[in-house]
Design a protein around this nucleic acid. Sequence first.
DNA 1: TCGGTTTTGACCTTTACTGACTTTATTATA
DNA 2: TATAATAAAGTCAGTAAAGGTCAAAACCGA
Lengths: 163, 163
Amino acid sequence: MFSLCDSIEKYLVKLIENSPNRAIVIQRGRIAQEFDCAPSQINYVLTTRFNVFRGFIVESRRGGSGYVKIIRIPIDRLEPVVSFLEKAVTDLKEADVEGIVNWLEREGFITEREARLMKAAMVTALNNVQCSVDQSDKKNFHFIRSSILKEMLIQVLKMDFLE
Amino acid sequence: MFSLCDSIEKYLVKLIENSPNRAIVIQRGRIAQEFDCAPSQINYVLTTRFNVFRGFIVESRRGGSGYVKIIRIPIDRLEPVVSFLEKAVTDLKEADVEGIVNWLEREGFITEREARLMKAAMVTALNNVQCSVDQSDKKNFHFIRSSILKEMLIQVLKMDFLE
DNA sequence: TCGGTTTTGACCTTTACTGACTTTATTATA
DNA sequence: TATAATAAAGTCAGTAAAGGTCAAAACCGA
C-alpha cells in the first residue's frame, strides 16, 4: 500500500544515501515528470517528509536553471539538540515527535527499540488519553509531550556519557 | 450460527495464517465491500477480536492510500505481561511504575537504557508537568501514566517478535 | 423480556494530490 | 540597455480518498 508520496520519499532518500555529502540537488519538474505527477506534489513531499523536525533542510531557487537542494542535517552531539528543545520547544505535535525520534534513530543515538518506546509514550499513549479529555486541554498535551521527550533525551545523554 | 463478525474474523485469521510473517496489510473499505457491510463493522471486529489481549496488534494510516495492518504476536512471550495489563493497569502511582520497570529489566525483557527511558517518561516528565497543574488532576496523571506504560509494553512485545 | 453482542449510519479527522495563479531568475531581442 | 519571453519553483485552496468514532438500532440467547 504505497502512496505516490511514499515512493517519491523513498526515491529521494536513496539518492541522499548514495550521495557523498548528505546533500542532493534536484529539479522539481524533472522528478514530477519521472513520477508522472503534478509538480506541486513534490512540494508536498518536501514539506511533509523532509522538514526540520525530520532532520532535513531544503533550499531552492526559482527561475531559469532553478533547483531544489535537500540537505540531511548531521547531529554530532546530542547536547545542543536537547538544550534547544529545552528552551524553544514546548508544544510538539505528534508528527513532530515522530520526525525527531526517527532522526535520532537514523543518526545512531538511539536504537530502533528505543525509538519505538519513545513513540509509544509520546504518540499512541497520549492519544489514547486525549480522547477522554476536554478539548481545551490540547495545549497541555503538547506540553506533556515536550516534557517527556526532553526527559527521555536527557537520559540518553546521561548514558552516552556514562559509557 | 455464525455472525458476520465471526466470518470476518475467520477470514482475517486465515489471511494471517497464510502470510509468511504473521502480518497482513488490508484496506478497511475493501473488506467491507467483500462482506457487504458497513466499514465500521471492520473496526468492531478489529477491536473485539484482534486486540492485544488476544495476541494481535493493529496499526493503520488514514487518508489517500490508507491501510490497516494486523500483526500477530506469539502467545508464549505475551502471556505474563498481558495478564498483568488486563488486571492492574488503570491507575498507577510512581512507585508502581518503578517496580514494574525494574521487574522487566530483571527479567531481561528490556535493557537498562530502555528502563531509564521508561522511567523518564512516566516519572520525571510527568512530575515536571504536574507541578504546574491543578491538584484535582492527580487522577488524570495516574491514568496517563498507565496508558504510557501499556503502550510501551505493547511495543516491547511487538519488538520481541519482530527480531 | 432483559442484557449483552452485533450492525449500521451519520459525521469527523487525516492524508494525499491537483491546478490555477504567483514569484523569481535567466535569456533573447528590439 | 530596457524589455519581453521563457523557464523554472512556490503557494494555497479545493477535492478526493482513505480510516476513526460514537451512539442508536437490531439481534439473540438465556
